[in-house]
C-alpha cells in the first residue's frame, strides 16, 4: 500500500522530465529554424552576386568538383554515424555512443581540414574574399557553414568528455539529441551549398 504512491510520483517525475526534455529539444529546433533563415539570406546574397566576378575568374575556373564531392561524402557519412550514435544513446550503450560520435568527430574534422585547404589555396592564389562580390558572397556563405561545423565539433568534444567521465544521464542524452539534430542540419545546409554553389557552376 505504501509503495504505490511513491512509484506514482516517481513515474510522474519521469514523465515530467521527459516533457521538459521535449520542450528543450523543441526550443533547439526553433533555433535551427532561425539559423535556416540566416543561411537563406546568405544563399540569396550568393545567388544575386555569383556573376559579379569583377573581371576575375568565375566559379567554374576556381572550384574543383571531385574535391568538393569528397567533402560532401565525408560530411554525409559523419551525419549517418551521428544518427547511429543517437540510436546507441537511446539504448544507453555508452561505448557505442562514444565510438559513433568519435567517428562523426573525426569525419567532421577532416571535412574542416579539406575546407581550410580549399580556402587557403584560393586566398594564396589571389582569390580572397575581398577580390570580388562573388568571392565575398562565396566565402561568407561557405565560411559560415564551416564555422557552424567547427562549433559543432567543439560541442561534440565537450559532450563526449562529459559522457565518458559521467554516465549517459537523461540530460546528456538530451544534449546528444540536440547535437545530432544540429549535425544533421549542417549536412542539409551542405547539400544546398553543394548543389547551388558547386554543381550549378559546372552545369
Amino acid at each position: 500500500m505504501k509503495s504505490t504512491p511513491v512509484l506514482l510520483t516517481e513515474s510522474n517525475d519521469l514523465t515530467h522530465t521527459h516533457e521538459q526534455s521535449d520542450t528543450a529539444v523543441f526550443g533547439f529546433w526553433i533555433y535551427i529554424m532561425s539559423d535556416t533563415i540566416i543561411f537563406a539570406c546568405l544563399f540569396a546574397t550568393y545567388a544575386v552576386l555569383h556573376n559579379n566576378t569583377f573581371g576575375g575568374p568565375g566559379a567554374r575556373e576556381l572550384f574543383n568538383l571531385p574535391f568538393v564531392l569528397t567533402e560532401t561524402l565525408i560530411l554525409l557519412t559523419s551525419s549517418f554515424t551521428a544518427g547511429l550514435g543517437i540510436l546507441a544513446a537511446h539504448r544507453r550503450n555508452k561505448p557505442q555512443v562514444l565510438g559513433w560520435f568519435i567517428a562523426s568527430l573525426v569525419l567532421g574534422l577532416s571535412f574542416l581540414a579539406l575546407e581550410f585547404h580549399e580556402f587557403s589555396a584560393l586566398i594564396h592564389a589571389g582569390h580572397g574574399p575581398s577580390t570580388s562580390a562573388f568571392l565575398s558572397a562565396y566565402f561568407v556563405l561557405v565560411g559560415t557553414h564551416g564555422l557552424h561545423v567547427a562549433i559543432g565539433a567543439l560541442w561534440m568534444v565537450l559532450l563526449l568528455v562529459q559522457v565518458a567521465r559521467k554516465a549517459l544521464t537523461e540530460t546528456n542524452v538530451r544534449r546528444l539529441t540536440m547535437l545530432s539534430l544540429f549535425w544533421h542540419f549542417l549536412d542539409v545546409i551542405w547539400i544546398l551549398i553543394f548543389t547551388i554553389v558547386y554543381l550549378m557552376a559546372f552545369v
Binding site: 568538383l65 564531392l69 560532401t72 561524402l73 554525409l76 557519412t77 549517418f80 544518427g83 547511429l84 543517437i86 540510436l87 537511446h90 539529441t177 547539400i191 553543394f194 548543389t195 554543381l199 559546372f202 552545369v203
Partner: peptide, 27 residues
C-alpha cells in the same frame, strides 16, 4: 520519434544515391 537503424541506413543510402547521381549528371 528517434528512428531506427533501418531508417538511418535508408536515409544514408538514399542521400548517397542522390549526391552521386547529381554529380554524375554534371560531370
Amino acid at each position: 520519434s528517434h528512428g531506427s537503424i533501418t531508417s538511418y541506413t535508408t536515409g544514408f543510402i538514399g542521400s548517397l544515391v542522390c549526391t552521386l547521381l547529381a554529380y554524375g549528371l554534371v560531370v
